[in-house]
Design a binder for these strands. Structure first.
Length: 584
RNA sequence: GGCCCUAUGGUCAAGUGGUUAAGACACUGCCCUUUCACGGCAGUAACUCGGGUUCGAGUCCCGAUAGGGUCACCA
């Protein structure tokens, strides 16, 4: 009977489902090797959460000597966005995610192909046919309107909405009716028969947890110790969360849609079995459909993979935390970090600090080791929703930038400026070597500067090295009289010798300061403020503003060396002219 | 609303029955210092609540509360 039904539904499928076992054989991997995958749907938006998940998958597979592959889950034609898969691959690649197998930028690689679910249609249909044959699934002719009605009435009666029990009208429909409807050209979906033990079968007493001594009764205050519930519970071991107790699936969920493509639930079960996935690592939002997946694996007679449900990334909105959303948080898209110019390594490193709680500690002990050396564990993964912290990212980024040689950094900045649409004319004109010198200011030695965090910040930070973006933005220290400016600048220009080393140079600045009534050292000024107009720092600030346009900058001497003698003199002259104008 | 997950400073978090409850970011002050940055020192600030188990609970159990997730022919 069921066999006839299956034949009626899928006359075109004549392949034996078991044959797939040999087409997609078990992987020959060492004990303990993790096979994981990323299964994005190509909807065109990639946010930090995707990267977060990708890292967990990637690390777990690669550090165990396993395989990490990319499968595109494009079973929803309605939401699919043109070119989204390509963009996703490119983006993940930029942030350092390496796949061993699956969909690539220009095709596919691996023997478990195809890796696009839309191309695996017949495989799914073959397994659906098998389930129908075994009486574990059935065609359902409920229309959208009918389902909406059912839902409305269920809600009115405060019942759990869904297709189950008496509402599963076609669950036991007879062959002739199905045949008639099919001949009528009616559209159908295939639903999986829930085999949850229902209340009508006698119900079950919800099991209460027992303490280590075996005492089942933990409510001595007379509270309800036991409660009758609709279905039994199942227990699943989650790789991150440990033992999970959930109600058995009681819905007749759709596994094959009208168009002949499977739903996520069914597709992932078939694929992860056939592709020999050992660990399904995915977001917490999948937790509630876990019972469906477990039931599906059981019905298929397959071993369930180890599920690892990661915490979601949250965002602060007003007073409360909220899950990152595609629509509302464009600034948390991967594209944002790219356009702001965060180095991929920095984003990677930051994500790792929130993925594994002991990463920061490890990093402190191994300041220069590559990320790959860190032993990543699911046990150290956070279970609660994490708030994204931009301050922390920036801090991490500063450390990461310090580890990158100036030469590479210069290339990075050049590339970033180009791709993010900045004006790169001057950058190019100045040349890479010039940029490299600028980026390397104060980065060597015991206590290197940590000025550099990300592209757009750096671009702004080094602006005064380029004539086009150089302008005087800060004003002189308040205690320096306006008439002193031109005088200081003139005297400085007179004694300036580009060949001076840093000590010689500063000695001259100090002398100049003293000659003009400024203290040689800030401490002298603090002790006797009435004796001076200010101190050497004020004089340096005047010079600094003339050279860089700003009251604060890295070491002036180094800046002057990089700018070159001629431009230093030009800027001094220009400032003198401006200050004269402002006096008169 | 049902079900599920989560709960330590503003943020990320150590902590697995006995601690003066780590550390990092951020913040504040001081020191170093020609500015800024770096660095050093110091400081503000936390176990959601109520029961229970125990000699002893942040840690175990139950419950409440709060936040989040999910209840589709979306993944």
């Amino acid at each position: 009977m069921s066999k006839d039904l299956a034949e009626l539904l899928f006359p075109d499928i004549d392949m034996d489902a078991d044959a797939y076992e040999s087409i997609y054989p078990a992987r020959d991997l060492a004990e303990g090797a993790v096979v994981s995958r990323l299964g994005p749907s190509p909807t065109g938006f990639i946010h930090l959460g995707n990267l977060y998940g990708a890292f967990v998958n990637e690390r777990l597979a690669h550090q165990s000597g396993g395989v990490f592959f990319l499968r595109i889950e494009d079973t929803d034609e309605k939401r699919e966005v043109e070119g989204a898969a390509e963009a996703l691959i490119e983006s993940l690649q930029y942030f350092g995610i390496r796949f061993d197998e699956g969909v690539t930028a220009d095709g596919e690689s691996g023997i478990y192909a195809p890796y696009r679910q839309s191309e695996r249609r017949d495989i799914y249909r073959c397994f659906v046919k098998k389930l129908v044959t075994e009486g574990k699934a059935y065609p359902c002719f409920l229309t959208e309107e009918e389902i909406a009605e059912i839902r409305a009435s269920q809600e009115a009666e405060k019942l759990t909405p869904g297709i189950y029990g008496e509402w599963a009208r076609y669950r036991d429909a007879d062959f002739d009716e199905v045949k008639r409807r099919l001949e009528n050209g009616e559209a159908f979906v295939v639903r999986f028969k829930s085999c949850a033990r229902q209340v009508s079968e006698g119900g079950r007493v919800k099991e209460r947890a027992t303490d280590s001594a075996g005492n089942a009764e933990m409510a001595p205050d007379g509270g309800q110790a036991a409660e009758t519930v609709a279905v039994c519970n199942i227990t699943v071991m989650d790789g991150i969360r440990g033992e999970l107790i959930m109600p058995e699936n009681s819905m007749d969920v759709v596994i094959l849609k009208t168009g002949g493509l499977p739903t996520y639930h069914f597709a992932h079960v078939v694929d992860d079995h056939l592709m020999r996935t050992t660990h399904v690592i995915r977001g917490e939002e999948w937790l509630s459909s876990l019972p469906v997946h477990v039931a599906l694996f059981e019905a298929m007679g397959w071993k369930t993979p180890i599920y690892c449900h990661t915490a979601v990334l949250m965002k602060m909105e007003g007073e409360t935390k909220r899950k990152l959303s595609k629509r509302k948080d464009p600034e948390l898209s991967l594209a944002y970090y790219r356009s702001e110019g965060y180095h991929p390594l920095a984003v990677r490193e930051y994500l790792l600090t929130i993925i594994n709680s002991n990463f920061e500690e490890w990093r402190a002990e191994n300041p220069i080791a590559p990320i790959g050396d860190f032993a990543f564990t699911t046990a150290k993964m956070s279970r609660s929703g994490t708030l994204f912290d931009l301050d922390k990212l920036r801090d991490v980024s500063k450390e990461v930038m310090l580890r990158i040689p100036a030469c590479e950094l210069a290339d990075f900045i050049m590339d970033w400026a180009e791709t993010s649409g900045r004006n790169t004319d001057e950058l190019k004109k100045g040349g890479k070597e010039y940029l490299q010198k600028i980026l390397d200011i104060g980065r060597s030695g015991e206590k290197p500067r940590k000025d550099l965090a990300y592209g757009s910040q750096i671009f702004e930070f080094i602006g005064y090295f380029y004539e086009g973006s150089f302008s005087i933005t800060d004003s002189r220290p308040e205690n320096v009289p306006a008439e002193d400016i031109a005088k200081i600048l003139k005297e400085y220009a007179d004694v300036y010798d580009h060949a001076d080393d840093q000590t010689e140079w500063f000695a001259k600045v100090r002398e100049l300061a003293v000659n003009n009534g400024y203290a040689a050292k800030p401490k002298d000024f603090k002790k006797n403020p009435e004796m001076y107009k200010g101190h050497v720092g004020d004089v340096s600030t005047v010079i600094r503003i003339a050279i860089t346009g700003r009251a604060s900058s890295p070491d002036l001497w180094e800046i002057q060396q990089i700018l070159g003698e001629q431009r230093v003199k030009e800027r001094l002259l220009k400032s003198r002219q401006i200050s004269k104008l402002s006096i008169s």
